[in-house]
């Protein structure tokens, strides 16, 4: 069992590194893409480990519920607080106290840096879904720290 502080620090260090490597290009830059693709790879690996002995999922919604409950609990020690869907392939996952943002000030001071702290997790979700046979695009937005919303758009094959 690795300690959680360790992951937090490592995650932070990864962000710092990628940022420096991309010459401090902020939002919408290659930095986010890079972090996201790292998360994607990790998500793929994690889901393989987690679903070793779970029964097959019935449908898309079942998969999403799994992500919100079990997957989120194993990674962030809590469940997603709110899951909404339009039943046409768009899901909104709301986490009112997202663990990777809790170390940042809850005010507006670091709002501009928040996307960097979410990119890895977007990839994590996308990678997880991809290995469960669901192709998706995952984006995140923060309106008030430390709450955030992940939007999952399912891509029809």
């Amino acid at each position: 069992m690795a300690d959680e502080a360790l992951f937090q620090f490592l995650h932070h260090e990864v962000i710092q590194y990628v940022n420096a490597a991309e010459n401090g290009e902020t939002e919408n830059g290659r930095c986010i893409t890079k972090l996201e693709s790292m998360g994607f790879r990790v998500g793929q690996g994690l889901i393989e480990r987690f679903t070793k002995d779970t029964p097959r999922f019935k449908d898309e919604l079942d998969v999403m519920k799994f992500i919100c409950k079990d997957f989120w609990t194993s990674v962030f020690k809590k469940q997603i607080d709110n899951l909404r869907t339009n039943h046409q392939g768009i899901y909104v996952l709301q986490d009112n106290k997202f663990r990777l943002l809790t170390q940042l000030s809850a005010g507006k001071q670091y709002l501009e840096h928040a996307p960097k702290y979410l990119a890895f997790t977007c990839g994590l979700v996308r990678g997880g879904l991809s290995n469960l046979g669901v192709k998706s695009v995952v984006t995140a937005e923060v309106s008030a720290m430390p709450a955030c919303k992940f939007q999952v758009m399912i891509q029809k094959m």
């Binding site: 959680e4 992951f7 590194y17 890079k34 790292m38 990674v75």
Partner: peptide, 28 residues
């Protein structure tokens, strides 16, 4: 699932850490 072994909030799934570290080394 084995990951539900502990509810200690300070402990987390070490696979996440291991895989993330792996992703970092790969990137480097």
């Amino acid at each position: 699932r084995q990951s539900n072994r502990t509810t200690d909030s300070k402990k987390m799934n070490s696979e996440l850490f291991t895989l993330t570290y792996g992703a970092l080394v790969t990137q480097l």
